[in-house]
Simulated scan of single mutants.
Amino acid sequence: MPVAIALGALVMTLFGGWVAHHVTDRRHLILGLAGGLMLGVVGLDLLPEALHAAGEEVFGVPVALLCFVSGFLAAHALERLLAVRKAAHGMDPHERVPQVGLTAAVAMIVHSVMDGFAIGVAYQVGEQMAVAVAVAVIAHDFADGFNTYTITSLYGNARRKALLMLGADAVAPVVGAASTLLFTLPEHWLGIYLGFFGGVLLYLATSDILPEAHHEHPALTTLACTIAGAGFIWLVVAVAS
């Protein structure tokens, strides 16, 4: 049953990627929406869950928030190190690095595996819990597919690689759900992962996606898309709670 539910996440992921792939003449709106979806997922979904799962503190700070800051800094350090490397080879350090996009896409895929894992674990707890988690996962997997394709493409990767990452992201929830038949992940480690991934996602949204969206088209429609993206995640969380 968990695997069957995860197939719904697979379909929504592909649909999200299909939308990002075809709406090319409104790229700034796509990026604005993607930024809002990413901000919404981080602030309204990932961080609350991370704080709940890894609630203990280290020197007065929740472990989940330490991991969140670590994820943000890790993404920043990776991008800066790649920029320095390019500068050393006489390349433009501000040119987008394809490896960053691929790394972000891999992080999205790992996150999608955990989405499927969450469906499987929730189903073991009870059907009502499974339904709530499934609604949240399937709805925001549209954002996952949308963001996976957009991030991979934004950093200069070929369309073939973007589609490959999208396909892997679509299959990931099914793999995660199937894995719950074999083992379980302690709640503490799940919280640590969610906090770290939230930091990575926030860095990508605020340092690349949103600035790019408003660079050539500083329009109110782009801002409206960003707000709508965050609002959509809020609606998903409200329905699932």
Rank of each mutant, 00 (worst) to 15 (best):
G16T: 06
G55S: 14
G198C: 11
A75I: 00
C67I: 05
V61R: 09
G198Q: 12
L14M: 14
A87Y: 10
R27E: 15
A177E: 09
M91Y: 14
H28F: 13
L7Y: 10
E127H: 12
G120D: 04
A34Y: 01
H76W: 15
A134H: 00
Q99G: 07
S207F: 04
D115S: 13
V133S: 13
M1I: 08
A168I: 05
Y149V: 02
F197N: 14
L10W: 03
L73H: 03
Q124A: 13
R96W: 01
F197P: 01
A4C: 02
F232N: 01
A224Q: 06
G8R: 02
L46F: 11
L164K: 01
L31S: 07
P98N: 05
F59P: 00
L7D: 07
M38S: 08
V237P: 05
T13G: 01
N147D: 02
G40I: 06
P2M: 11
A118T: 07
T184D: 05
A122F: 00
L33K: 00
D144F: 00
G35Q: 06
V200E: 05
F68K: 06
R27D: 13
L31N: 06
V11A: 14
T180G: 11
A172W: 00
V133N: 13
I151E: 09
V135S: 04
L220V: 15
E57F: 09
P218N: 13
A20T: 07
G32S: 08
I109P: 03
I227N: 08
L33E: 02
P98M: 04
L47Q: 05
G60H: 08
Y193H: 10
G116Y: 05
D144H: 03
L44V: 11
L37C: 07
F146Q: 02
G71R: 12
V23L: 13
V19A: 09
